[in-house]
């Protein structure tokens, strides 16, 4: 029990699950609930919240079958492992080999946050007017704690894509490396749109990420990822971060002037309800 007698969510959670039944701690919580309105209010709030959590977990649904490339790795590893108890040769796919599907998955995650369908979001738009790219750009894998990617994907809305009138076949999830064919190596990072050239400088990128961080909240942690991509056909750096204390992920699409006195915000979604 908390020394200051304020409601303790973890203790109340155990009480709500019946884990304290017949224990001195359970009796003490019961007494507090009967005597202290703060505890009874916290308990009512908690039980409602736990119901929402259970419903949310139930809504997650199944993961689905093991991806073909993972299954292939397992088969290959076991096929070369020798007999039980023997030292195994371990075929391991290097980290970079799976960057492409990881990036596609990350893009899909962001697409989901932005509130439109994954398939629509995973369209590429090679005919978009901003396809010119920065030649020979080599981006760092990370800047501080932030994963830096260049998927070239268009995170724009379905409506925005329709407006562009430049239909392109969906990349399809198999193109994200989930079919049985081996992914290409090295990973096909997309070129950085020319309009975003300024942000390929680490100093400019860092200034941009700091500006975004300041916009979201001074106490927010470093962005998790920054993707050189497009939003509704417009070159954009798409940034994912989680602001405390609510801890909900936010996605911001920013333009090339991000960090140069402002954020150059194109779109923002998610965050504290």
């Amino acid at each position: 029990m908390s020394a200051d007698h304020r409601p303790d969510p973890a203790l109340l959670a155990e009480y709500a699950e019946g884990l304290l039944a017949g224990t001195p701690e359970g009796d003490e919580v019961a007494a507090r609930l009967a005597a202290d309105p703060a505890w009874s209010a916290a308990y009512a709030e908690l039980t409602g919240a736990l119901a929402a959590v259970r419903a949310g977990l139930a809504a997650l649904g199944p993961v689905g079958p093991v991806p073909a490339e993972v299954a292939d790795r397992l088969d290959a590893a076991l096929a070369t492992a020798g007999g039980p108890g023997k030292f195994a040769v371990r075929p391991r796919r290097g980290r970079r080999r799976v960057v492409a599907p990881v990036l596609a998955a990350a893009a899909a995650s962001v697409a989901v946050l932005l509130g439109f369908s994954v398939v629509a979001a995973l369209r590429t738009d090679p005919s978009a007017p901003t396809v010119a790219s920065v030649p020979g750009t080599v981006l760092p894998d990370h800047l501080g704690e932030t994963l830096i990617t260049s998927t070239g994907l268009d995170y724009g809305t379905v409506a925005a894509q329709d407006a562009l009138r430049s239909p392109a076949p969906p990349v399809g999830l198999s193109a994200a490396g989930t079919d049985s064919s081996p992914p290409p190596a090295p990973p096909p990072a997309s070129p950085v749109p020319l309009a975003l050239a300024r942000l390929t400088s680490p100093a400019a990128l860092e200034a941009c990420l700091e500006a975004v961080r300041a916009l979201v909240g001074a106490t927010s942690p470093a962005p998790r990822s920054a993707d050189f991509a497009r939003f509704g056909g417009v070159p954009a750096l798409v940034i994912v971060l989680t602001a405390e204390p609510a801890g909900r992920p936010q996605v911001l699409a920013v333009g090339p002037d991000c960090g140069a006195g402002g954020v150059d915000l194109i779109s923002r979604t998610g965050g504290t309800p």
């Binding site: 959670a13 884990l19 259970r54």
Partner: peptide, 18 residues
Amino acid sequence: KSRCARGRARLAVLLGHL
């Protein structure tokens, strides 16, 4: 059970329900 109860309570905070 304890880990589940505490995990759910923590999720409630992380998800903004609590």
